[in-house]
Design a protein around this nucleic acid. Structure first.
Length: 426
RNA sequence: GGAGGAGUGGCCGAGUGGUUGAAGGCGGCGGUCUUGAAAACCGCAUCCCGGGCAACUGGGACGGGGGUUCGAAUCCCUCCUCCUCCGCCA
């Protein structure tokens, strides 16, 4: 959530930001109206409470000195009743005020382009060239089925559509790529590896913003009131929830493998075929906690860390700077990394690289002190996939397919597969 | 899953209804002393919210939430976490 002081002190700035994102600017006015009533009521409650505290002390003294306190006690009771009814109001106002605040998205960074839809996203740069085939390339699902490395049908049989089974060399390849990416980020890019829980409590989901707004997108174990994580961002960001760090510890960089579970019911068809959209997939997630003044620098290196994975595998990709209206609710600035799928002839998103500034940290209460005794400030949080597996796997299968139907394994992955160079039929 | 026990400030730890943000100790910071350091002594300390340009000032916080009471760290309910024993299990 944003700093509500901004709404109080610079409502015009907040309104402009809301407009830039395509939100109703009246969100700010609504909040201010509730806030004004809240503050007024707070003052009255606190004045009465202050009096009550005085009277209460007097009772203690009277009792100790053996005086009759029945009159003061009567006064206390009257004050108590009045305070109680006012507090009832206050609680309602507070609820309303906080609910309004949670509806307000992060303010876009000045470098986020104007625009409301994906068409206004700006291509920042492009790496590699789509490879030219001297035969007609097949889509990944055909290759994978022919090689018997992915079983779509049986995945659907045991768990429903959107669930897949990696098999044999396919399972080994999935595991190898994940290990390759994790090793790169932990050994070369300075991230600390985290292996988090995959089920979390509701308050963790609130901490990173999946709840209350996106309840429908998640798998929920009602009996235990636990949610399956849609991304490792949730447990990893919440690791430091309600903590106050030392400035010297920052930046903190975490890399985590996790499976990701997403209900999001997409319509069947072109965009759901094969690995494009599945309910369970694997991903390596990168999460950073930084000083406010360092977050944009760290945002750029975060993007590079994700790009390095793709470059090392020879995958063609482009980086898009999202316009204000196309960014996620919590982001101030966001790059999407999209890889070129030769089989589909489309760009597919494999990583969203976001700087949330203090939006998540405020909500999750993640703070730091510049020095001992200094006032706690909110850290900045950032994250990116480094990267998500299914579309990467699909693209590797399509890009590395051979005329004879076999699949060449990208060179950096071979050590992770016992030196295997090629997956062939049979 | 069953039966018990516990949760107080950075740490340890007193406190079972009243002027307690909370004794004492450790650790921390500042000062006195000292050529310097140690020791000793003195002093200061948290977080959140409201009001105020400010000095300052009011309120709240003893795991979380709710309740009883004129008044709750202290009594009751509930949730969470940790510990011990039993059961079960990879």
């Amino acid at each position: 959530m944003i700093d509500y002081r901004l709404i109080r002190n610079e409502p015009d700035r907040v309104r402009a930001a809301l407009l830039k994102r395509g939100y109703e600017p009246t969100l700010a006015e609504n909040w201010l109206a509730v806030d004004a009533r809240w503050r007024e009521t707070t003052t009255r409650v606190e004045t009465l409470t202050a009096e009550k505290n005085q009277v209460s002390k007097q009772i203690a003294i009277d009792k100790k000195e053996g005086r009759d306190a029945s009159e003061t006690i009567a006064r206390m009771r009257a004050l108590g009743d009045e305070i109680q009814s006012l507090e009832e109001n206050l609680r309602q106002l507070e609820e309303e005020r906080d609910a309004e605040l949670l509806m307000i998205p992060n303010l876009p960074h000045e470098s986020a382009p104007e625009g409301l839809t994906a068409e206004q996203n700006v291509e920042v740069h492009r790496w590699g060239n789509p490879i030219a085939f001297d035969f007609t390339p097949k889509p990944h699902w055909e290759i994978a089925e022919a090689l018997d490395i992915i079983d779509f049908e049986r995945g659907a049989k045991i768990s429903g559509s959107g669930f897949i089974v990696y098999k044999g060399a396919g399972a080994a390849l999935e595991r190898a790529i994940l290990n390759y990416m994790l090793d790169m980020h932990t050994r070369r890019h300075g991230y600390t590896e985290i292996f988090p829980p995959f089920l979390v409590r509701p308050d963790s989901m609130v901490g990173t913003g999946q709840l209350p707004k996106f309840q429908e997108d998640m798998y929920h174990c009602a009996q235990d009131e636990l949610y399956l994580i849609p991304t490792a961002e949730v447990p990893v960001t919440n690791l430091l929830r309600e903590e106050i760090l030392d400035a010297a510890e920052l930046p903190i960089r975490y890399a985590a493998y996790s499976p990701c579970f997403r209900r999001e019911s997409g319509a069947a068809g072109r965009h759901t075929r094969g690995l494009q959209r599945v309910h369970q997939f694997n991903k390596v997630e990168l999460v950073k906690f930084t000083l406010p003044e360092q977050s944009y620098e760290e945002h750029e290196s975060l993007l590079k860390n994700a790009e390095t994975v793709l470059q090392s595998l020879g995958i063609t990709y482009r980086v898009m700077l999202l316009c204000a209206g196309d960014m996620g609710f919590a982001a101030a600035k966001c790059y999407d990394v999209e890889i070129w799928s030769p089989g589909l002839g489309e760009w597919l998103e494999v990583s969203s690289c976001s700087n949330f500034e203090d939006f998540q940290a405020r909500r999750a209460q993640i703070r730091f002190r510049r020095s001992a005794g200094a006032k706690p400030e909110f850290v900045h949080t950032l994250n990116a996939s480094g990267v998500a597996m299914p579309r990467l796997m699909a693209t590797i299968i399509e890009q590395y397919q051979q005329a004879d139907g076999s699949l060449v394994i990208p060179e950096p992955i071979r050590p992770y597969m016992g030196g295997l160079e090629r997956i062939s039929r049979g």
